[in-house]
């Protein structure tokens, strides 16, 4: 009996994990454009993100944050 309750708890937790993954994917814009990423994968080693230095990458993160602020 109690085993089943534990298992139900586990299955719900797992399902909630997938739900939050879905929510994250929607929020981060993965459902906004479903075509262009399929082209980006074709770019070889000299792709858009490789040439960016550390500081630039940090800047990008701050950009994302301010973008979020902007959306809210």
């Amino acid at each position: 009996m109690s085993v089943i309750v534990v298992l139900i708890g586990c299955s719900l937790l797992l399902a909630l994990g997938f739900l939050s993954a879905f929510v994250w994917a929607v929020r981060s814009g993965q459902f906004d454009d479903s075509y262009t990423p399929s082209m980006r994968i074709l770019f070889d080693g000299r792709g858009a993100n490789k040439g960016i230095s550390q500081s630039e990458a940090q800047e990008k993160n701050s950009v994302r944050r301010s973008d979020k602020l902007h959306k809210q």
Partner: peptide
């Protein structure tokens, strides 16, 4: 795809560009 690649590399031509992202269908 070349267009996407070049436009997403705009930061190399103008260092003031932080990020450029193409939506191909639009």
């Amino acid at each position: 795809a070349s267009c996407v690649w070049l436009l997403e590399n705009l930061h190399k031509l103008d260092p003031g560009v932080l990020q450029s992202e193409v939506n191909f269908m639009r």
